[in-house]
Write a protein that binds this DNA or RNA. Structure first.
Length: 281
DNA sequence: ACCACTACCTGAAGGC
DNA sequence: TGCCTTCAGGTAGTGG
């Protein structure tokens, strides 16, 4: 499910329910997601107040007044639902869904983490140690960081024969892109996804940053994309999926100005990839 | 170091 | 309706 725009949408949806609030109770309903929860996960969280909710790549990070930070990755199917408490809601809260694995309670709400496939994970670490956390330490720059520009890509791509789309999926190269937005960005940049990264010229390389930023900005503004059942924490779906130009559009006409090509679906590094063979070179 | 491939887990959707 | 196969936005680990 979630790439950078969806994670950012979730972050914004959770912010009002969590930031400044104290976690009165946390319950885990199984010992692991993708990985085991860290020791005493629930008790370390209970009683802590959330100071800030941030995003790094596809990670959510909640800084707590206990000097620890909660790290959350949504995997493919992770999502948060916000419910008012029984008292606030009157009718009482609905029973938990089958894949509701973690329940966070504040004075005002219940925030439920569901993850059918359990590719998500959570961890706790001292806030001061966040930069050293193994899952965060290897992340590349944020797409909106100044450093994410042509000279950086030139360095990252040098000598690499791997397709540029696969490189953009590498979170160590740039943090937050996933299968959809990598395809979309390369279509906008008119670069073939399977083109070896090291073989891309400077002019084309210069088109990558603006293309990536444009598609991410538009997607965030649209509240992310809704495929299957993804929904923001407030329950409203994103609608950027209607703005996909290539993803899931095999056989359809290419939308790039002046191009008469048709979008093709291929498989690259085991992932579905969409591009226009005519205008993406 | 690099790169291709597999595994992880469940549900939805399509073909028959 | 039901069974079977394929596919899915994620990362991590293995082995060449």
């Amino acid at each position: 499910m979630p790439e950078l725009p969806e994670v950012e949408t979730v972050r914004r949806g959770l912010e009002p329910a969590l930031v400044g609030e104290r976690l009165s109770k946390v319950t885990i309903r199984r010992p692991d997601l993708r990985f085991a929860f860290p020791p005493r996960f629930a008790s370390r969280l209970a009683g802590a107040r959330i100071l800030e909710l941030r995003r790094r790549g596809k990670f959510l990070i909640a800084d707590l007044d206990s000097r620890e930070s909660l790290i959350v990755h949504l995997g493919m199917t992770g999502r948060f639902l916000i419910e008012g408490t029984p008292a606030a809601e009157g009718s009482g809260s609905a029973s938990l869904a089958k894949h509701a694995h973690v329940v966070f309670e504040t004075d005002d709400a219940r925030i439920i983490f569901e993850d059918a496939r359990r590719f998500g994970f959570m961890d706790l670490t001292l806030t001061a140690r966040l930069p050293d956390h193994p899952r965060l330490a290897s992340l590349g720059p944020e797409p909106f960081d100044d450093i994410f520009a042509e000279p950086y890509l030139a360095k990252a791509f040098t000598g690499r024969r791997q397709g540029v789309k696969t490189m953009l999926l590498d979170q160590a190269v740039v943090a937050g892109l996933g299968n959809i937005y990598a395809s979309e960005a390369l279509h906008r940049a008119r670069i073939a996804p399977e083109k070896p990264a090291g073989a891309i010229g400077k002019a084309a390389r210069s088109r990558i940053t603006p293309a990536v930023r444009a598609v991410l900005e538009e997607a965030i503004a649209a509240g992310g994309s809704t495929l299957r059942d993804f929904a923001a924490a407030n329950g409203s779906p994103g609608y950027f999926q209607h703005s996909f130009r290539v993803y899931g559009r095999g056989g359809e006409p290419c939308g790039n100005r002046g191009c008469r090509g048709r979008i093709r679906r291929t498989v690259q590094a085991g992932r579905a990839t969409y591009h226009c063979p005519l205008c993406q070179k």
